[in-house]
Design a protein around this nucleic acid. Structure first.
Lengths: 143, 143
DNA sequence: TCTCAGATGAAATCGAGTTGCAATGATGGG
DNA sequence: CCCATCATTGCAACTCGATTTCATCTGAGA
């Protein structure tokens, strides 16, 4: 799902009751093409070159979040990250994220890469898998 | 460890190579008496009455964090929280941490509760186990 | 006691996040 | 196909926690 056509993006927006405007298609397209969560600043850097405004990008991210197409999380660095909810990730809604402490980039890890064991004394949330797992370290580029 | 004498606080600061100044002793004292993480604003509210400046409190929180006496985390509400590192957290450097997104308490998980698998495509740091794992969710009290 | 690097206080700055408002444009109805 | 309407945009300003600047002050070793 690296890149969808404009028609596909437009259809997806309309299916949620959102107007298919140019900036909105661009934002959804960026998130669709992205590997993992992206910050507002990252999207702004990528899209102001095309003439779109910060505030518009911000409001579209909120719109997509409200529509349920995108999830908004804070991975602990004081910046909201927006990630497309993918059909392929539907079965593992809380896949772990890898956070590079060198360059700050964030990537998704396959759910199989982290296995949780609800050992004695651990919070019950661990047993229900209703937790968010973050792995911090150096990415291959920064190591 | 609800309250330490000024002498004890002073000694602890000196042991880290920090000067035992009045504001610094007050900040460390507040964190020592606190039950859980405290935000900069909370400490400011408590300490400006004694005549200490916001910026000074902020810098002392950073100093204590750099010195390793205090940990700084974000519970997801976009505000830094500072919590005294207690002795019980000191040993076993690479165990996973459980962060409650409700009350902010930070608990140590047994190393066995999280198992990492270096699957294809994962960063090499995962294979070397040179990563830090954080599990976020609701603790038993907040669930 | 003297000295000065480290620390403080007051104010300014930074930056992500957010909002107000007039102009614009996507959509549905005619 | 055109028009009216209302969601959306672009711009600028604002909020507020986080952070820095700089002149002054002070804790701690000599």
């Amino acid at each position: 799902m690296s890149a969808l056509s404009v028609q596909q993006l437009r259809a997806r927006l309309r299916a949620c009751g959102l107007r298919a405007t140019l900036p909105r298609i661009a934002v959804l397209g960026q998130l669709t093409a992205a590997e993992g969560p992206r910050s507002h600043a990252e999207l702004t850097d990528a899209l102001t070159a095309r003439g779109f405004d910060r505030a518009t990008i911000y409001r579209n991210l909120m719109d997509l979040t409200d529509a349920g197409l995108v999830s908004r999380t804070d991975l602990g660095d004081h910046r909201w990250r927006f990630e497309l909810k993918r059909a392929s990730h539907a079965q593992d809604p809380c896949h772990p994220h890898f956070i590079c402490e060198g360059c700050g980039s964030i990537a998704c890890l396959p759910e199989a890469s982290v296995e949780l064991h609800a050992v004695r004394g651990a919070p019950r949330a661990l047993r229900h898998k209703s937790v968010q797992v973050q792995v911090r370290g150096l990415c291959n580029g920064c190591a």
